[in-house]
C-alpha cells in the first residue's frame, strides 16, 4: 500500500501545487481524475517518489521513503514505476528499451532478452521487437513504454494519461494490459481526464482539483454523469 500523509508540494518554493493531501492507495486500480493543471502529474510523481514533498510523508508498504538512506531508497524506488504522459524511449530498438530495467538490475543480456521477448509476446507487441523509436506510431510508443515499465517487476505501476496518445484499437489493448497487470498481483495507479476510460475500469476514482482531493467516487458515479451528458447532448442535436 502507498500512503500519503499531509503532503505539500511547490515548485521553486512558490505557490503550493499540492496542499495537504492525505491518501491511501489500496485498491488494485486507482484512478485520479481532474482538469488540466489540477496537479495530477505532480501528485503522481510524488506517489512514484520522484518528487520529494516540501512537507509530509510518503509511505511505501509502511516505510517512510524520504527518511531512508540512499541504498534503501533504491530498493524501495524499484517497487514503483512511473510512465510519463509523453514517455521517452531510449536510443536503440524496442528490445533495447524493454531490456533496460533488467540490465540495470544486473541481469545478463541473454536472460533479459528472453524475458523481454516473453513479455512482448504476451502483450501482442512482438512485431515491434526490432523497431527503433522513430519507427513507432504514437500508440505503439506508449505501449512500449508501458511494457518497459511492467518488466521492471515493480509492484506499483503509475500511469500518467496513458490514453492520451492512443487510438481506439490501442485503448483496447491497454485495457487488457491493465487487467493482466492486476491479475499478476500488482497495483495500478492511473491519472486521466478521460472519463470513459475511467468508467470502463470500474474502480475507485479520486477527483482532485487545485491540488486538493475534492471527492472520492466510483466508476458507477461517472456512469450517471455521462448518461446525463449524453441525454442533454442528444436532445440538443435533435432539436437543431
Amino acid at each position: 500500500m502507498i500512503e500519503l500523509r499531509d503532503v505539500w508540494f511547490s515548485y521553486n518554493s512558490g505557490k503550493p501545487i499540492i496542499h495537504g493531501v492525505n491518501l491511501r492507495l489500496s485498491n488494485e486500480i486507482t484512478i485520479i481524475i481532474g482538469p488540466n493543471g489540477a496537479g495530477k502529474t505532480t501528485l503522481l510523481k510524488i506517489i512514484a517518489c520522484l518528487y520529494k514533498p516540501d512537507k509530509g510523508d510518503v509511505l511505501i508498504d509502511g516505510v517512510n521513503f524520504w527518511k531512508l538512506k540512499s541504498k534503501e531508497k533504491l530498493i524501495m524506488r524499484r517497487k514503483i514505476v512511473y510512465v510519463h504522459e509523453n514517455p521517452v524511449l531510449f536510443k536503440g530498438t524496442v528490445m533495447d528499451n524493454v531490456t533496460y530495467p533488467l540490465i540495470i538490475r544486473g541481469h545478463s543480456l541473454e536472460k533479459a532478452r528472453e524475458k523481454a521477448l516473453k513479455l512482448l509476446k504476451s502483450l501482442k507487441l512482438e512485431y515491434l521487437t526490432d523497431r527503433k523509436r522513430n519507427e513507432l506510431s504514437a500508440g505503439e510508443f506508449q505501449l512500449v513504454a508501458i511494457a518497459r515499465a511492467i518488466i521492471s517487476g515493480a509492484k506499483y505501476i503509475v500511469l500518467d494519461e496513458p490514453t492520451s496518445n492512443l487510438d481506439l484499437e490501442h485503448r483496447i489493448v491497454l485495457e487488457s494490459i491493465i487487467r493482466e497487470i492486476v491479475k499478476s498481483g500488482k497495483q495500478v495507479i492511473i491519472a486521466t481526464h478521460d472519463r470513459l476510460f475511467a468508467l470502463k475500469l470500474n474502480t475507485e476514482i479520486i477527483e482532485i482539483n487545485n491540488g486538493e482531493i475534492r471527492s472520492i467516487l466510483h466508476s458507477k458515479d461517472l456512469y450517471q454523469e455521462i448518461e446525463e451528458f449524453i441525454k442533454k447532448a442528444g436532445k440538443k442535436s435533435l432539436n437543431s
Partner: peptide, 27 residues
C-alpha cells in the same frame, strides 16, 4: 529541456544515479 525526462525515466525504471547519468550522457 525535455532531455531531463531521460533522467527521470531511468530513475523510475530502477537505475542508480550513476546508471541514470550514463544513460543521459549516452542519449
Amino acid at each position: 529541456k525535455a532531455y531531463y525526462e531521460y533522467w527521470e525515466t531511468s530513475i523510475t525504471l530502477g537505475a542508480t544515479p550513476a546508471q541514470a547519468f550514463m544513460k543521459l550522457i549516452t542519449e
